[in-house]
């Protein structure tokens, strides 16, 4: 390592704020991106053989694996024809020293709960998980495991869950414009005499999403630098976050601003524009 690079590394460790500020004042970020650039996003589908659907998403260095397991259970009394989708985000100390061992921490609770509410009936209709009304439905357990944490867990988790549901192996054709083919549930039959659900040979039923989701995250550092797709270092400096989800027809599905700072109307215009561009990027994945 040359001495200059070594000095820069020490400077970054001791004064992270000043280190980043010097980049920001030249309209650049420490990893060479411009303010409204996203990190390279790579996806792999269907990597896990034992899972019923799976995907891996890499957003820069952030790596997320989403695996889905389908099990059979009884429906709720209030909703006899509807199944379950159970998404849980696991941020273990394996992925970063920020997270402690033991029960799920605050961030993973917040992300899990937000994803649970985002993938509601208008996005993922639960009546397609029906096997036998009032007796048996599917329950999709979607576990989203972080392998390397480098910021922006929201975007990565949502993309991973989307792609795991929309499993590549079966996604050879689109059914029509708004419906997409997703996880194929194993074909089962309900045995009335024994009351059990048996797996039988043959093509299973497909699961569909009414719309695809295209998330983007922004953060505001020192009230003036609006950064797209923040890395972990940038997240630590930021006081305000803005999270926006677009659907297939350019509508806003979800919007969430958190943090104590304020965002000006000009900045929201930039956010909308960038989110639309991001949608086009993600559609190509």
């Amino acid at each position: 390592m040359s001495t200059d690079l070594f000095k820069a590394k020490i400077f970054q460790k001791i004064h992270p704020q000043e280190f980043h500020r010097r980049f920001f004042s030249k309209k650049l970020r420490t990893d060479g991106r411009e303010f409204n650039d996203f990190r390279t996003t790579k996806v792999t589908q269907d990597g896990i053989q034992v899972a019923d659907g799976s995907s891996t998403v890499r957003l820069g260095k952030t790596t997320i694996v989403c695996g889905i397991r389908a099990e059979v259970c009884e429906p709720k009394l209030q909703t006899p024809g509807k199944g379950y989708l159970v998404p849980n985000v696991k941020l273990t100390p394996m992925c970063s020293n920020k997270f402690a061992p033991g029960p799920p921490g605050l961030l993973s609770q917040v992300v899990s709960d937000h994803i649970y509410r985002l993938f509601d009936e208008s996005v993922f209709p639960l009546d397609q998980l029906l096997i036998e009304k009032g007796t048996a439905v599917w329950c999709l357990y979607a576990d989203i495991v972080c392998l390397n944490y480098d910021g922006n867990i929201f975007d990565a988790s949502i993309i991973a869950l989307m792609l795991a549901l929309k499993n590549g192996k079966y996604n050879t054709f689109k059914l029509d414009i708004i419906y997409y083919k997703l996880v194929v549930l194993p074909k089962v039959c309900f045995d009335e005499t024994s009351g059990s659900v048996n797996r039988v040979k043959g093509e299973g039923s497909k699961v569909t999403l009414t719309t695809e989701l295209f998330p983007s995250t922004f953060c505001l550092v020192e009230g003036s630098y609006l950064l797209t797709d923040p890395s972990m270092d940038e997240e630590d400096l930021a006081d305000t976050f803005f999270f926006i989800v677009m659907d297939s027809s350019d509508n806003i599905v979800n919007m969430w601003k958190r943090g104590a700072g304020h965002i000006t109307p000009d900045q929201t215009d930039i956010i909308y524009e960038t989110a639309k561009k991001r949608k086009l990027q993600l559609e190509k994945l």
Binding site: K76, Y84, V86, P103, Q109, Y116, C139, P186, R199
Partner: peptide, 25 residues
């Protein structure tokens, strides 16, 4: 989110009991 005994309020909870479909031999 349901609150059956044994559920963890820190997780998104599914049904109380679920089983994989029976595999043919």
């Amino acid at each position: 989110m349901s609150g059956f005994p044994g559920s963890d309020r820190r997780l998104v909870n599914g049904p109380e009991r679920s089983v994989p479909p029976l595999e043919p031999n």
